[in-house]
Amino acid sequence: MQPFGLDLDYVAVVALFCVGLYMLVAKSNLLKKLLGLNVMETSVFAFIVTAGMVEGGDPPIMVAGTSAPYASPIPHAMVLTGIVVAVSVTAVALALIVQIHAHFGTIEIDELKELP
């Protein structure tokens, strides 16, 4: 379905991206910011996977019971890599947030700014 020539699946992806960006920018809580970042990441992954799909396509696994057309395998591999990268970034961010919490006793930006 493509009203106004817009591919709604892609538009949904952009919407998700914006939701994540808003969380990242507007929220004061560092954890919520991180969640926003994750939402953004997910939206880009969704974009890639969406692009790799083909109408009526099967997963690109060449075993009995599947037939052409197949979805493109490259986006899946890309997203797999992307997910691992995202997990790693999240891990480091969490470790930093834990440190900030241990040191300042808060993870709210508003409160961190008020500290002496």
């Binding site: 493509q2 020539g5 817009l6 591919d7 699946d9 892609y10 538009v11 992806v13 952009v14 974009f47 969406t50 692009a51 790799g52 799909m53 083909v54 109408e55 396509g57 057309p69 493109s72 490259i74 986006p75």
Partner: peptide, 15 residues
């Protein structure tokens, strides 16, 4: 994204 080729067309460059 509006100007990308439609995503599930079999003749998109990605396929």
């Amino acid at each position: 994204v509006a100007t990308l080729p439609p995503h599930d067309a079999p003749d998109a460059p990605i396929h």
